[in-house]
Design a binder for these strands. Structure first.
Lengths: 214, 214
DNA sequence: GAGGCCGCGTACCGTACGGTACGGTACTGG
DNA sequence: CCAGTACCGTACCGTACGGTACGCGGCCTC
């Protein structure tokens, strides 16, 4: 029963429409302006008063946290029914994960949010870092592993520990891309490139863990 | 001729002993205090005046840059004579790279410096990001690729593009480790764990790219 | 021992920015 | 029509921190 739902440790009430607009303003500002985000700028951009900002989100950190959570809530799309798998579907599913994951991490928003979270993790209370981790790396792990296990059940994959297998998958897909982007490398991946990368990663993963059905 | 030397784009004069002491103080402070590094704190810690700091390094950015460069200059150890390779030596060399690379990125210093550089890349002039990239990802790439190519020449490896092969290697070694550490995940790797990880990565890499000598 | 540097310590300045206070406007319920 | 609430806009406060100025002691050179 602990299956697909993306472990929301505490239930935070969803932001109202107006609040969502504010959070979108934060995201936009973050993407445009790099990360020296000031409360003044947010208030101006969102056409609201700073006082409201503080009333709604407590403080700057609260605003950032809400923003990260808000963005995360959008990404959690995806139907994950794991039925029985044949080789083609397994491959398809992995491809799907790989491509959409690359798509996310290559996006400006993801890069900026990760930067914020990393900076935050560097200066006490790694709250943001934990949130990003939970909604990024861990969330996708939680969704991929069942597929891997289903693949094993179907005799298509061989591994002992799905976590380890997943981490290899993760490495094959992401390689140096995320760190390069975070460090400011240009490196723009278009859709075609992403598809190619994803395919290569999946091929390699299957080469390592796949087995012809005995 | 463009071979092993780690592309130092501009020659910066090495810091004097006293300056090195200051930079070490910065590193220590960074490691201890997270990243809210103030010039005051540096001056206090290094027992020098702020004025001297500014005289030597120009401004805060200059100090950070010098620190990153200073740390980088320490890592560049390593004899890289690429002779003829047999399978065992190739494996050995790759293992070596993998383990020492993991060792570096798992270190507090690396994590903190990467955090700084990433934050910096987020707010205009990605200077630090570029430097870290050049001395991290790119430097190790520059050192591994010749080995891979020697392996190919010796008929031990098969690949078309050494860059691509290296990136796979990179992914297999690093997996999710760096991003997790940057985001504040605990995840402490002891030496044994690192050796195991490195061995697994090399095995996987050889499974993908190795070939029995024909 | 006199001048000149270098660099330490400390006091100081300016400003950017997080956070608060307050007046003014619109809407709601009674 | 009035009280209450919500929220915008703006002015304001406090402080942390980057950067500068200055005085003083140690060290060289002559």
């Amino acid at each position: 029963m602990t299956a697909t739902a993306p472990r929301d440790e505490t239930v935070y009430e969803a932001p109202s429409a107006r609040q969502q607009a504010v959070l979108d303003a934060v995201l936009a500002l973050l993407v445009e302006e790099g990360d020296q985000l000031t409360m003044d700028a947010v208030a101006r951009r969102a056409s609201c008063s700073k006082e409201t900002l503080y009333k709604w989100f407590g403080d700057r950190d609260g605003l950032l946290t809400a923003t990260v959570r808000w963005q995360a809530s959008r990404v959690h799309a995806g139907r994950d029914a794991v039925g029985t798998l044949d080789a083609a579907t397994l491959r398809e599913r992995l491809l799907d994960f790989a491509a959409s994951w690359l798509d996310v991490i290559a996006g400006r928003t993801s890069v900026v949010l990760n930067r914020i979270a990393i900076a935050h993790a560097g200066s006490r209370k790694g709250n943001l870092g934990a949130i990003v981790l939970a909604n990024g790396r861990l969330a996708i792990g939680g969704r991929v592993k069942p597929v891997l296990e289903a693949g094993r059940t179907a005799g298509l994959l061989a591994f002992e520990d799905s976590e380890t297998a997943f981490r290899t998958f993760f490495g094959l897909v992401g390689r140096d891309i995320q760190i390069r982007l975070l460090l400011g490398d240009a490196l723009d991946l278009d859709a075609a490139e992403i598809r190619r990368d994803a395919a290569r990663a999946v091929d390699q993963f299957l080469a390592l863990y796949g087995q012809a059905r005995p």
